[in-house]
């Protein structure tokens, strides 16, 4: 086995270790991205409400 595949194999526990890291990455990155997107849309809505005269 090459060094890489030996590393990825994680002593035969790959099926438990990599999914653990994957689910942590998905939830943490997902929450961060969703929160930033929500903030951006809210700020855009606020700007639209603020300056309807110039917008028209």
């Amino acid at each position: 086995m090459t060094r890489l595949s030996e590393f990825l194999d994680m002593g035969g526990y790959a099926h438990f270790i990599w999914p653990s890291y994957a689910v942590v990455a998905v939830v943490m990155l997902g929450l961060l991205i969703i929160s930033q997107r929500e903030l951006r849309t809210a700020q855009r809505d606020l700007d639209a409400l603020d300056a309807p005269e110039e917008a028209q």
């Binding site: 994680m10 002593g11 526990y13 438990f16 270790i17 653990s20 942590v24």
Partner: peptide
């Protein structure tokens, strides 16, 4: 064995 590496995400969570 290597499963201890799960500790580095399990315990902080």
């Amino acid at each position: 064995g290597a499963t201890v590496r799960i500790m580095y995400v399990h315990v902080p969570s």
